[in-house]
């Protein structure tokens, strides 16, 4: 990103909000079943790829650009932004208590099932494809 302004955070935030806006607009126009910010994330990734393709392959290459400044600042406190939604859950605790057993066991059980399935499968397949890569297309 060109850092002509000496407030990289604001420049970066403008980029982030711009991508979010375009993402939200795309969702609005196409009825995509995805939230606007997620589409915005993919758009920003595309922008970063196009402008800094060289970063590909360099382990943890740190861009100095404004987008990196703003993104790192926001992501360092990503947990903060979920606090209001979390507090909103308090209002529904009564509803959850009504069916405590199926709610709690269903929540914990299916959360665990999803986590374990993805973790084990991704690790297993990742090892296999790494081996295949080394074996020069064998297997």
């Amino acid at each position: 990103m060109p850092d002509s302004v000496d407030v990289p955070f604001l420049t970066g935030l403008t980029w982030l909000l711009g991508c979010q806006l375009v993402g939200t607009l795309l969702v609005h126009l196409t009825d995509l079943p995805v939230p606007g910010p997620v589409v915005g994330m993919l758009l920003l990734l595309l922008v970063l790829r196009l402008r800094h393709p060289s970063e590909d392959g360099s382990p943890a290459g740190r861009g100095e650009g404004s987008v990196h400044v703003a993104a790192d600042a926001l992501l360092a406190h990503l947990q903060l932004f979920f606090v209001p939604a979390g507090v909103g859950v308090v209002a529904y605790l009564g509803l959850l208590r009504a069916d405590a057993v199926p709610v709690l066991a269903g929540l914990v059980g299916s959360w665990l099932a999803g986590l374990v399935a993805v973790g084990l499968l991704a690790q297993l397949l990742g090892r296999r494809s790494a081996r295949r890569g080394q074996g020069g297309g064998a297997a």
Partner: peptide
């Protein structure tokens, strides 16, 4: 604070770009 969740989600592209 809730509003910032939007740009923060977009910001996830940056660590992804690096990795």
């Amino acid at each position: 604070i809730s509003f910032l969740l939007g740009p923060a989600t977009v910001a996830l592209a940056v660590p992804l770009h690096r990795q």
